[in-house]
Nucleic acid binder design. Structure first.
Lengths: 204, 204
DNA sequence: ATAGCTATTCTAACGTTGTTAGATCCCGAG
DNA sequence: CTCGGGATCTAACAACGTTAGAATAGCTAT
């Protein structure tokens, strides 16, 4: 029975190389090139072997999405750590987010593709949601401000960031400008949170 | 030669019914059901006939995207017309945008799908960009404020709106809440534009 | 009215996709 | 050495986008 664990280890290794190969393929040649047969071929297997590690193509794509969100979380957390000022601890992860979208455009598109089950995507993104909530409550505390609804503020910031980063994929805008726009948008939000932490803004 | 124009009319009619059928199919059964054969069948033709009206499936999808942006523009313009206060002239189109995304989730997803050429999508959305710029400059004028960069403000607002509306497709959030979030986000932006029209926000 | 041309439509097929069934092969256990 | 079970392959299926070529329809001109 001692061979059982090695078998498992080998199985996991094959699975991981499939994910790695699929990631490389996706980013190198785009979503259209990401076919089951090519992934299998790139790890020197035939197509049906893929189905011993993933229930179907969706499951493989979901694995890529999960890796994507994990890498994104790492980048954002690292950016937050290097920040020195209070506002930078929010602005730096923002920049990291847009930069990630620029560095891995196809993976980023997949992470937000409606073809992958929205529920699964949301679950994969949960750690980032937690991180952002933490960053935001930390920011508010350092500013001596209590937000009426931190989760609402978080959702607004998340949506904003997502939308502006997606704008960067348009070649008429580009990711450098998108990073600038995201910075502006978040600064505006922060300004409002400080002056109106209750979330109730006056109209005119 | 008098039959030539009637032929053209008939051709245009067939093309339009294909677009109409494709739109209905997309919204009723989702993107996966939108196949060339089904569109052809639904207008009682065989598949190759589709290729006499569209170069390929991409072209058909692009036609749907164009219809989508046109309808969205109409809805936003109508909402702006019914608004009474200065701020509502910006907030009402915002609500119309999110509501459109909620009413036509699959079409909205297609309009922002990277599978459709980004350049074409941007071109299809151009009239809306114009509308939003107009609304924004009008808003600024009525508030007696000159924005340092109206196009930057527009891009930020557009990205924000897009991101938050996309959030609505997650069943954990939903379009009602997304509409609320979009309202909050835009109010925050407007507040900032009034107090800092130069676009230079203080840090802390 | 009829013959012929042209545009329209269909049938049939190709290559590729995701996916599954069954044969085959290999490797470890008794 | 044999045998049993998991791993892997071959072959195939249905459905997809797409194209070529046959058939058919409808208009035009005599």
């Amino acid at each position: 029975m001692s061979t059982g664990t090695r078998r498992e280890r080998e199985r996991a290794t094959v699975r991981e190389s499939m994910v790695a190969v699929a990631l490389a393929l996706l980013e190198r040649e785009g979503a259209a090139a990401l076919t089951v047969r090519r992934v299998a071929g790139e790890v020197e297997y035939t197509a049906p072997v893929v189905y011993q590690h993933f229930a179907n193509k969706q499951a493989l794509l979901l694995a890529l999405v999960e890796v994507g969100y994990e890498r994104l979380r790492e980048r954002m957390a690292a950016a937050a750590r290097t920040a020195t000022t209070t506002d930078d601890r929010l602005l730096a992860p923002t920049g990291a987010y847009v930069r990630f979208a620029g560095d891995n455009p196809h993976l980023y598109a997949l992470m937000n593709n409606t073809a992958v089950d929205p529920h699964d995507r949301f679950r994969a993104a949960a750690p980032i949601t937690r991180l952002v909530v933490d960053l935001m409550t930390g920011w508010a505390a350092e500013h001596g401000v209590v937000l009426a609804s931190p989760v609402e503020a978080c959702e607004v910031a998340w949506g904003t960031l997502y939308g502006i980063a997606s704008l960067g994929q348009l070649d008429t805008i580009g990711f450098d400008r998108a990073a600038h726009l995201a910075d502006r948008a978040l600064r505006a939000l922060m300004l409002t949170w400080r002056t109106h932490p209750d979330g109730d803004y006056p109209a005119a």
